[in-house]
Design a protein around this nucleic acid. Structure first.
Lengths: 221, 221
DNA sequence: GATATACTTACGGGAATCCGTAAAAGAAGA
DNA sequence: TCTTCTTTTACGGATTCCCGTAAGTATATC
């Protein structure tokens, strides 16, 4: 069982349901905040006073309002929290469904569970609590299949740079200039062309527009 | 006060929070369903047995799963319900934030309240209950101002057809063929070019890739 | 029927992209 | 150091796209 849990979730309705799920699970010692900055403060304070949290439940997207925040997203929050307290368990509760993004959370940030806001989300939350208690990871049922399959092609860092530049309105012929400015290794126009053509060939796409649409769909940009 | 309320919301977490908000407001006589079809059945049955609902709370988007549904969206549900029981009050609880869509709900479907799933959504739900009880309409605070402004450019049906074709990999020069096949009115290549250029000019974009990325972001494709 | 207006299509020159080939530059191993 | 192999860059022709102009078509008004 968890000794102490912190909930970071801006939507009042989700926040309430998470608390209720925790209480149903038998965990009554939980705090909740509506802003990332507050979450980090709590984590920090708890560490200093010697009664740290052992689980952080957080959303990914937090809406901006009149109160300016240093940390604006769940991803940033997790990074900051893990620097303070590397051993903390993390459960992400979000409406995100793009495989690439969720995959990255497990691989890069070592989160312990991802529950998607969806039909049976509260049931899944409790299953995730259980998994974490048993030192296992948890991923929403609806996402388990589609997590690998979307990776028909693994986008390298260079690929994503090219695609991002295009989607920001940089013309293909101007990409070498941008690459040189950022000292990125292959910067010739031919390399750019070759790489874009290679991606389209592997994915059997016909034009750049289709490539951009695909990358937006799976969340790599 | 409401005599009887029906909640149609597929997300378990939101469903729970709505129920809790209703109970906090003092309304204990409420039913909840997770599918539109079930909602319509309940409305129908209640009418026949003479103890009809006086408020329907519904989401807009319902996720498909293994159980096939006749009614798939909140908008369709509201239409169907109003045909059975025109006097029923309707509160829409959704993450939707596009002014055009919400505006349409009030104008075309005569809904009584729209609460956006956001930071203070439960508080707003209670304010909306209060407004409806007093025969008033309610709209989330964050949406009251920005109801028009989000439309930097209103995409017409033709625009979306063009963008969709491109994002599916159809080359620009081949678009006229597709348009003629579907008997879409302006089908000349020049018209296609002109329209794409117009969109890019209005949005001050440099290339098609940027346009595709934008449309993916705001959800028109 | 003539005219005006708006919209659609056709055409052509120039720019950008596509695509193959070849030269140049690095990297690795003997 | 030289050779071999890989990667990057340079170049050029074909294709596609961009963009302005002109011609065609439809509708409405008088």
């Amino acid at each position: 069982m968890f000794k102490k849990v912190l909930i970071a979730e801006d939507h009042e309705s989700s926040n309430i349901s998470i608390r209720k799920a925790l209480e149903d699970f038998g965990c009554l010692n939980n705090d909740h905040v509506y802003y990332c900055d507050d979450a980090l403060k709590r984590i920090n304070h708890a560490l200093k006073t010697g009664n740290e949290y052992d689980l952080l439940i957080t959303d990914l997207s937090f809406e901006e309002d009149e109160i300016p925040q240093t940390i604006g997203t769940g991803t940033e929050l997790i990074k900051a929290v893990k620097e303070l307290q590397p051993n903390i368990k993390v459960l992400v509760f979000s409406a995100e469904s793009k495989g690439a993004i969720i995959d990255n959370l497990f691989k890069e940030l070592n989160i312990n569970a991802f529950v998607r806001k969806a039909r049976r989300d509260v049931t899944e939350l409790k299953q995730a609590f259980d998994a974490i208690c048993n030192q296992k990871t948890y991923l929403s049922a609806s996402l388990r299949r589609s997590i690998q399959y979307s990776n028909a092609y693994e986008f390298k860092e260079f690929d994503i740079i090219l695609i991002s530049l295009l989607s920001k309105g940089v013309l293909q012929k101007d990409i070498p200039t941008h690459l040189k400015a950022k000292k990125i290794k292959p910067s010739g126009l031919s390399s750019v062309e070759k790489r874009l053509n290679y991606m389209k060939e592997v994915l059997s796409f016909n034009n750049n527009e289709q490539l951009i649409a695909f990358c937006k769909d799976i969340g790599v940009i």
